[in-house]
Amino acid sequence: MKLHLKIWRQNGPQDKGKMVDYDINDVSPDMSFLEMLDVLNESLVAKNEEPIAFDHDCREGICGTCSLFINGEAHGPDRAVTTCQLHMRKFKDGDTIYIEPWRAKAFPVIKDLMVDRSAFDRIIQAGGYVSVNTSGNTLDANAIPIPKHDADRSFDAAACIGCGACVATCKNASAMLFVSAKVSQFSLLPQGKVEAKQRALNMVKQMDEEGFGNCTNTGACEVECPKEISLENIARLNREYLSAALVE
């Protein structure tokens, strides 16, 4: 396949940046999207040009590092995948592909397609944990039975990989899906219920301070989320937060 690529190049946070055109030949449909970029980068290095910087690591859809806005969609046109799991068979010979970084005030561009998502870490630090120290003397793991239904829904929320596709895709750059997934994971488990109120308040406070937008329930995040985190979690966060704010 031959492809025309339009790729965002920006040499550092202060640089203005622009879209640059690249043509690439000999793309195999079996390549992953990132392997296609590897091939392009290899050709740039051969020309002694600086390769395109993009975030990636595990390349199996679980670390949440890769992050491209491809043809107007977070992680590209396929569903329930990260960019590293997107394969070139989803494109046609001669296609033009736009490749851009996540765009949000809270995710400043570092270079080219790499952005700084440390805002997510700070939100977790604000309360995304159960305050239990390491000890060999906690309760036996089976001491509290947890209904399978709750455990499964907690897992579904916990499957979030923190990639930021929800923010990137939301027209308001809202981080509600991310925050709600973590709040839901814990609020569905007895271990997490103890601090549920404080957690919801603190995480939302941090989320607001980071400069993410407000959720307007368009549902785009759920569609583009590579782990298919449900909007139901956002409703649960709203519920948890409002009840916490009321008794605060």
Binding site: G72, E100, R103, K105, A173, F212
Partner: peptide
């Protein structure tokens, strides 16, 4: 506020693929 949360727009956006027009044009 939401506008401020994304100061730089995308060159290419395919919002129709993931949300309804009505929800985006409130």
């Amino acid at each position: 506020q939401n506008r401020k949360a994304r100061p730089d727009r995308y060159a290419m956006e395919k919002a129709g693929a993931n949300s309804s027009l009505g929800s985006r044009t409130m």
